[in-house]
Amino acid sequence: MWEYSEKVKDYFFNPKNAGVLEDASGVGEVGAIACGDALKLMIKVDPETDRITEAKFQTFGCGSAIASSSALTEIIIGKTLDEALAITNQDIADFLGGLPPEKMHCSVMGYEALRSAIANYRGEVWEDDHEEGALLCKCFGVDEGMVERAIRNNVLTTMEQVAHFTKATGSCGTCVEGIEEVLERTNAAMVEAGELAASQAFVVGAAPVVGRKTPRNSPVVALTSPPATKMTTLQRIKLIEAELEALRPALQSDGGDCELVDVEDNKVMVRLTGACVNCQLASVTVQGIQSRLAERLGTPVRVIPVPSGH
């Protein structure tokens, strides 16, 4: 059993502000059921003073996820939006008297939901990157800054260690490449600063990757047979369309579906519908589509899911 502080237990057993806030002026939703963690934060803002007058939450998750959500509402009520935006996930953890290291992602989820709710109130589209860098692992809410800090503070040199310290890469595995880059870059900087022996540093491709969900023999972007001549845009689109069409039956059998929205250079925009919506495994699906398209086109492509309604 985890070692929870008394305050975590108290906020879990007697959560404050749990439930639905009617007429919320801003709503933020982060996480997904597939990953075992999701938070919907609802806030009411006084437009005169820009203060958060009410906040409620609904959380799917473990004890510390519920406690972190509840703590977040307590922290932000009465604060102006700018004051609220200054709150970090560490503040949430500190408020609770600390969280077990494996549970820090619960506080990150609160941090993300708050930003999302405020953006929603202001009519902005919330981008899930911030001063600490891009959110790399969406399943566990791990951003670049957190990964870098974990690597530096604990002298991590393998992907497995990064997964243990941050949980990043531990679920769907789509962020493996991004995390590998951060690990390589951070280790290289540490070598330069004399904090790490060069022989210890992580180099992409030089060591086996732990946590990757795709079979070892099928790299994400498989460039097996580059075509002899460059395709025209029309040819590319036709080929992409045909490939997606071939993939649809498999998605439909899981209750989902996929359609092509746009092609722009090497970016392929697709819309996932049906059961794919809100399914965190959608990122695995996207990865699968991406590797298949890359193989057929003979060039690397990025498949980008766009929300429905765009």
């Binding site: 879990f12 075992g36 998750g61 566990f140």
Partner: peptide, 28 residues
């Protein structure tokens, strides 16, 4: 989520277990 259920069960004096990621320390 399973861990939340187990914590409340434990508070009620009932010991059970779950395959939940959150209790086992694993991620899946």
């Amino acid at each position: 989520e399973g861990e939340a259920i187990l914590l409340l069960l434990n508070k009620a004096g009932i010991a059970a277990s779950s395959g939940s990621a959150c209790t086992s320390g694993s991620l899946e």
